[in-house]
């Protein structure tokens, strides 16, 4: 075959015709549709029934489950808890994470080592984090012993067993786990800010606060959006940590949507639980879309 006879026509992108790309798509599609998409859609369907998990003679009950949701105090409580949890987690994780990232960015010695070390907690399984922190919070555990040894005996308390401290205790454990990731992203973003901009601002006489608010923060839009979005969605779905630490107790103050739905399933209220999970999905979608939109607007203006 002579090289000169390369056809001038555009070579078709479907060489073997239809079938190759179909073949390539098929296995992934099959697994994905059967084990992901269909169940999610099915959940939606079951939420309109009174399925109890065993008896297949379930009936269509319309919006009854959703009406139950609105009047169920435990459900409302878990919904509120989930959002309180999420918002506090986002605030602490991202603000603290950003501050730490600024510190790391100052090119202090061993900065890279610290960044790597800070990332470790996110590699630990949720239940291990839960049990580790259960120990830390227990009577005679790490925190209480520490308080005793410095003479602050009156502060010794069962942090996880009390209604007014349990939620914060769990939040701290969760933030501990993921703050390294947030810092990592912020540090990476900080590194992309061209120093020429900062130097120009310094020459123009801008103090550090101005540099911070007018140059650095706007250019941090990408990492802020990713961090806030992923931490929000992740904390809405939280389950492992809470299950291992308090399982929703005491008195339901740490009950979140995830733990409550599982409790419902265990009790056989599968139709109702499905409605709960549909609500969870809707919450996630709404949060996701609004955050993506909001941050998109911010990034555009930058």
């Amino acid at each position: 075959m002579e090289i000169e006879s390369i056809p001038k026509r555009k070579i078709k992108t479907t060489y073997d015709g239809f079938y190759v790309f179909l073949l390539m798509l098929l296995p992934a599609l099959v697994i994905y549709v059967i084990f992901f998409l269909l169940p999610v859609i099915g959940s939606f369907g079951y939420s309109f029934t009174n399925f109890n998990g065993i008896n297949m003679n379930y009936k269509f009950v319309g919006l009854r489950n959703y009406r139950m949701m609105i009047t169920d105090p435990q459900f409302i409580q878990s919904l509120i808890n989930t959002f309180v949890f999420s918002i506090l987690v986002i605030l602490i994780q991202n603000i603290l994470g950003f501050l730490v990232a600024m510190l790391l960015h100052e090119k202090l010695k061993y900065g890279a080592l610290y960044t790597a070390l800070l990332f470790l907690p996110s590699l630990i399984p949720g239940v291990v984090v839960a049990y580790l922190w259960t120990y830390m919070y227990s009577m005679g555990g790490f925190f209480n012993t520490l308080l005793e040894s410095v003479g602050l005996d009156q502060l010794v308390q069962p942090w996880l067993g009390q209604v007014n401290t349990a939620m914060y205790a769990v939040i701290i454990a969760h933030v501990w786990r993921f703050i390294g990731r947030a810092s990592l992203l912020f540090t990476a973003n900080l590194a992309t800010i061209p120093s020429s901009m900062k130097e120009a601002a310094m020459i123009d006489g801008a103090g550090w606060w101005r540099r911070l608010t007018h140059i650095i923060l706007p250019m941090m839009a990408p990492s802020f959006s990713v961090n806030v979005i992923t931490s929000f969605m992740g904390s809405l779905k939280v389950f492992d940590i809470i299950y291992g630490m308090t399982d929703g107790g005491p008195a339901g103050v740490t009950e979140t949507l995830g733990t409550y739905i599982i409790k419902l399933v265990r009790q056989g209220y599968n139709g109702y639980a499905a409605a709960g999970s549909v609500l969870l999905v809707i919450c996630i979608l709404i949060v996701n879309r609004s955050l993506v939109f909001g941050f998109g607007q911010w990034e555009k203006r930058v």
Binding site: T14, V20, F36, L37, F239, V281, L285
Partner: peptide
């Protein structure tokens, strides 16, 4: 590759990123 359903398939996979599989536990 280019074909008519390409966008549909792509968006189909994309939607899985936001959807929590945990929520589909009952049908699963």
């Amino acid at each position: 590759y280019n074909y008519k359903m390409k966008m549909v398939v792509y968006l189909l996979f994309l939607s899985g990123i936001v959807l929590p599989l945990k929520a589909a536990i009952i049908p699963l």
